[in-house]
């Protein structure tokens, strides 16, 4: 039997990379927009902002991990919008009739999203370090960098796969905007990216506690050597982040495997 998973997944992943490079607008959307947010929030709050329970740190420092998660989120959104475009433009139908496992289709997309998110995040962090707007107290050690990278990969796989579950069923980009605004953006806003759980109203704290992004962000913060400011413990954060990635990828494979009974 021919390989129906990893060679096709590799090819689909490669296609994601090539398309990203050839579509300059995607770089703007998924990298520059978060950077702009970071500059606005960082400079806007300036010295007047100190999160409840947080140690003394500049607002640029505080918003840094959240900005990285925003890069992950935007990359995942673009990756999923391309599923809808591929369906509309006809490319996807060719993949669906090929002897390719549905896991390959999901992995091509999810690993593509993860790779792009990592590359952009590293670029962003490099710029932050070079401009001395972050890591004034020194960068993370090898273990921390590894933890941060793992957090990024897992979180972007989870979010991309979660988006995939919805993008697979909708047939227009407009419909996906609803998913984006009602699910994905709130997941980011309530992850501790904008404000720590410690000072939030009780209902918001509940939402933050059940939001998987909270744990991914906490894992990332811990890896980057930042205090989680009242967030989940590192071990719990890592466990939930792994679980979320596995569950979301499984859900995406199940959705993609369902054969349609109607047109």
């Amino acid at each position: 039997m021919r390989d129906q998973t990893w060679l096709p997944a590799f090819s689909l992943w490669q296609r994601e990379m090539v398309r990203f490079v050839r579509q300059r607008s995607r770089v703007t959307g998924s990298l520059l927009t978060p950077v702009l947010f970071w500059l606005l929030f960082g400079a806007g709050y300036g010295g007047s902002f100190r999160p409840a329970g947080a140690p003394e740190s500049s607002s640029f420092e505080y918003f840094l991990p959240g900005t990285v998660v925003l890069i992950v989120l935007f990359t995942a959104i673009f990756a999923n919008i391309s599923i809808i475009e591929d369906r509309r433009e006809g490319f996807l139908q060719g993949v669906l009739v090929a002897p390719v496992s549905r896991l390959a289709i999901v992995m091509g997309k999810v690993l593509g999203g993860a790779t792009l998110a990592i590359l952009q995040a590293v670029l962003f962090l490099a710029v932050a370090v070079a401009t001395r707007s972050a890591f004034s107290g020194g960068g993370p050690g090898p273990a921390g960098a590894l933890e941060a990278a793992a957090a990024l990969v897992l979180l972007s796989m989870g979010i991309t796969a979660l988006g995939f579950v919805f993008a697979w069923r909708v047939d227009s980009v407009q419909a996906f905007h609803g998913v984006m605004n009602l699910l994905l953006m709130p997941m980011w806003a309530l992850s501790g990216a904008l404000f720590p759980a410690a000072g939030a109203a009780p209902p918001i704290r509940v939402l933050m506690a059940i939001n998987p992004t909270t744990y991914g962000l906490a894992m990332l913060r811990h890896g980057l050597g930042r205090d989680a400011t009242g967030g989940p413990a590192p071990a719990l954060a890592a466990a939930v982040t792994v679980g979320f990635a596995v569950l979301a990828v499984t859900a995406a494979v199940l959705v993609a495997s369902k054969r349609r009974k109607t047109a």
């Binding site: 398309r19 006809g90 060719g94």
Partner: peptide, 28 residues
């Protein structure tokens, strides 16, 4: 089976050769 759809199933952002190579990968 090979299938040619009503709307071409090529990736417009790839070259002709890249499309064919990608297709080959899908078929092992």
């Amino acid at each position: 089976l090979g299938v040619t759809f009503q709307a071409p199933s090529l990736d417009r952002k790839l070259t002709v050769r890249e499309n064919l190579i990608h297709q080959g990968h899908l078929y092992g």
